[in-house]
Amino acid sequence: MATRGERRPAAAGALLARAWRAVVWYGKGLTGESRYDAYVVHARAAHPDREPMGRDAYWRDYAKWQDANPQGRCC
């Protein structure tokens, strides 16, 4: 997570690392890559009795679901 706020003098390296993490976090959110992590959190909470799907199985299942639920793109 990118958190804002604290502005303590930090080494340029640490700052860069944080910026990099923020970019990656945003990129993963935008492309939907983080959807899987969200799913795991959700599945653990909603169905604690079973193990969440693995990454591979999740994306296959997601693609199948997308096939049946197309979303338009705008002009």
Partner: peptide, 13 residues
């Protein structure tokens, strides 16, 4: 929430 299409997403994302 279903971990598929109903997914709470950070507002900036």
């Amino acid at each position: 929430a279903n971990g598929r299409d109903y997914v709470a997403t950070d507002r900036r994302v």
